[in-house]
Amino acid sequence: MIKDVITFEASAKEDILSFFDKSVDDEGLIVEKDNPSQRVITLEGEEISLKEFAGIKRGSEIFIKSDLISLMNLSDHI
């Protein structure tokens, strides 16, 4: 287990997003719960879908994608 990590299983993704006032729009993209037209973006400025969603890092809520390169870069900063 990596230190200071709260883990969640894939089936709890929407609960986690909900705790952070986010929801998922019709296209499967993560959006602000109170403003569904505002899509959440990653540090690289990319929209992020529920399927790609891997987690959230502190620093104005940095949303992380689950692809190998994103996780490799995350690994360097935790």
Binding site: V5, I6, F8, R58
Partner: peptide
């Protein structure tokens, strides 16, 4: 649960990570 998770995230610098991604990083 959500309130405590947010406190842990904001005040205790916890990272939230899906378990398969955590496994990939390990």
């Amino acid at each position: 649960l959500g309130r405590l998770l947010k406190i842990a995230f904001e005040k205790h610098n916890k990272l939230l990570l899906e378990e398969k991604s955590e496994e990939t990083i390990q």
